[in-house]
Nucleic acid binder design. Sequence first.
DNA 1: TTAGAAACTTGACCGCCATCAAGAAAGCCG
DNA 2: CGGCTTTCTTGATGGCGGTCAAGTTTCTAA
Lengths: 221, 221
Amino acid sequence: MASHECVQLVPIFNDLATNQLDTIESIVRHHHYPAGSTIFSASDALDTLMIVASGQVKVYQLAANGREQLLYLLQTGDIDGEAALFENQQRTSFGEALVPTEVCSIRREDFQNLMRQYPSISINVLNVFGKRLSQLERQTTRATTESVEARLANYLIETAAALKTDTFKLPLKKKDLATFLGTTPESISRKLALFEQQALITQKPGKIIQINDADQLLLTE
Amino acid sequence: MASHECVQLVPIFNDLATNQLDTIESIVRHHHYPAGSTIFSASDALDTLMIVASGQVKVYQLAANGREQLLYLLQTGDIDGEAALFENQQRTSFGEALVPTEVCSIRREDFQNLMRQYPSISINVLNVFGKRLSQLERQTTRATTESVEARLANYLIETAAALKTDTFKLPLKKKDLATFLGTTPESISRKLALFEQQALITQKPGKIIQINDADQLLLTE
DNA sequence: TTAGAAACTTGACCGCCATCAAGAAAGCCG
DNA sequence: CGGCTTTCTTGATGGCGGTCAAGTTTCTAA
């Protein structure tokens, strides 16, 4: 395994040379989390940037009534914690490893120094922020204006598009998918059954979904 | 009116000296929009940073089914358009002046040069991004997990807290407030009537709301 | 001041979807 | 492979809140 295993995965360090990556690697700390373990919790102090070196992390919030909202599903190379790199803040969400997960972390002061030293990092972080903002804006709009059916249809289509295949395995349990789409596992089951009945999709064991008619699925409201 | 009327309002330029502000002021362009006019639309090219010098701008998206989602209410000193300062992108939302509004704009290249020249700007922009992200995350969570009643109660309490008074005028028409909270004007009317009946608030003509029992209001689920 | 428009309120109706419950299927581990 | 747990499906039920409609108040501008 290369000495800069973590940092070379991360888009925000894209523009740096190998020896600069080594510098960064020397200041990160490595952590391992088994599947199901909690990586951070709301109200934790937020003073490090987190990089997912391998594995999968679900980031969610808890509402006052105890219900869960899945915000992000972090994959290898994704980062989290950027929200408070410049001010003392508390976390507002929970992070949980869905599979055995390797995480690298950088302390706030170290990351601030890095940004001063390599201005391209700031620009890349701004880009990450921007994409996440746009994504969340759309998610909010859909959650409040479209039906569960439309949200699920959209999710299926976008997942297929991202994987560039019509047949894929759902990356989440129905329960987690439900908290992501703002609905319940029962509703997901029903809507998927409905789509299958309309011949828009085909379901197979192992959470495999095949999309038969993406165009028609998109028209779902 | 000072020569750097716009830029001195903006938190992201906070750390700059007066003569530096003059430099910035020299590259901004000024625009005026009457009440009700459209400032930008979805699918517009996004190549300028926008600063609200005075007035009020509502930023909203349209869902596939035509329904509106109010995302931000920009006030004096707020900025918009940061999402694409480094990449060619299109706007995904609409901006509409709610009252006569003065806007300053900075072209992307100019702003990129400013950020290189004054690194503190990048850091401030990151802060703005971070706050907006946190706010949106919470908004998403609430929209998908809490009832209309709870969302409205929360909105009233937060508005009162921001204004540091128990009696205030709703800054939005019920229709816009509805698109912000992801509901309808009718539901807002009903819920406000309910709160008044429970003696939690008092309504007066002119969209004046007085909060009588914030603690009890917070418990609304 | 006053007509007209826009915004707001109130009522009746009903559909979507969350909830509860129970049974079926799938995954896990010895 | 077999037993156990977790996840998923399917049914029945009820309530929240969206929609439509009509009346009322507030705002605006001549």
